[in-house]
Design a protein around this nucleic acid. Structure first.
Lengths: 207, 207
DNA sequence: GTCTATAAATAGATAGAC
DNA sequence: GTCTATCTATTTATAGAC
């Protein structure tokens, strides 16, 4: 994955495209706007990428590759299962904050039924779940975790996380003036909350 | 809101459009496809609606009006706070199952920053949160609930619910062959789980 | 590698007949 | 209310010069 550098045009295109796809979705994204934001022109995009779809797939793939790398490191570490679980949640949050385009693009891709996810990306997605499963198995073997449904647990982690990051705009727009609406919500507070909920399930404090 | 009936063309357009917007998003939706799915032609859409945007706004508004009506009924009922909370979660799930376009459209709209939400719809969204707040206040006054952040609690309810309904397609596509991936997940099990998590927070069983 | 100019297709919207 | 035909703008993608 050629990481973006201010100098090379391909990196600038990837950065501009990620922003554009996050803001407008695949169909709504405009190749010309991407080119202008990258201080280039349309032709340069087709010099580096075969098509709009290929550009989008590259961005998707990069997102999930990054997340998988991070959570695989966590699963392979020497921490206790509960600590790994906390770090798993944190890893996803870190990646979402480092790549602000990640949560909105993932939300849209879910709504699209995963239509643009190619084989490489699918492997990464499965790798993320495999890392969580490994943590759960280890915890269960150690007697620290009870067995829970992987998808229910993962949904309880990824869904509120993605919502928190992706809805900053909507919260500002819709909840102006609503008391207790949580304008003061910090990433740290949300992450801590999700960690506690997940651990409460695994440790049998809640059914 | 003129409810869809098999006979009238406006209802058929609304039904076809809801499906199209859910599958492709606002920008990706195709007016011609909507017309064909409604067994009509493009001109009929512009006879009933001012524009593609107006058609989309009507569908958004209808979704949230329906949810608000349901949760307002729950909040105004005579049940105990804990029962109301459980019925609040169930109400959203019922509405999501009754309108399969609702979860994907809402996911996309979040990613869009709520760009297409007009004033009427905004009132409905706020009304949904107001109903939850009323339930929380009542529970707190009765000494049954402790005070929690409205947005964190609501996010913990709405996010996994929308994910569950909206990701059925992705789960099938991405997780084929993954053991324990929860192909057996039922709406009832997911709803019960979310109810328990929310109540655990409110009753202080988890921080 | 980067650009201008343009081809080719798509899609929102409207005119006007019935 | 419903249709066919069409206008017009937008947009992906490419040709070809530098």
């Amino acid at each position: 994955m050629p990481r973006p550098s201010a100098a090379d045009s391909k990196g600038r295109i990837l950065a501009a495209a990620a922003k554009e796809f996050a803001a407008h979705g695949y169909a709504g994204a405009n190749v010309d706007r991407i080119a202008r934001a990258a201080r280039l022109n349309k032709a340069m995009i087709y010099y580096h990428f075969a098509s709009k779809a290929a550009l989008y797939r590259d961005i998707l793939n990069d997102m999930f590759a990054a997340v998988q790398r991070r959570v695989a490191d966590v699963a392979a570490s020497a921490d206790a299962p509960a600590a790994k679980l906390r770090r798993y949640v944190e890893a996803i949050a870190v990646e979402a904050e480092a790549r602000p385009h990640f949560p909105p693009i993932w939300l849209r891709e879910l709504a699209d039924g995963g239509r643009h996810i190619d084989q490489a990306t699918r492997r990464h997605v499965r790798g993320v779940l495999a890392a969580l499963q490994a943590i759960l198995d280890e915890g269960a073997r150690a007697g620290a975790f009870r067995r829970v449904n992987l998808i229910i647990l993962h949904g309880g982690i990824i869904a509120p996380l993605m919502f928190f990051f992706a809805t900053a705009g909507v919260r500002r727009r819709l909840l102006r003036g609503v008391p207790l609406a949580g304008a003061d919500l910090s990433t740290a507070a949300v992450v801590a909350h999700i960690q506690q909920l997940a651990l409460a399930q695994l440790e049998g404090k809640v059914a």
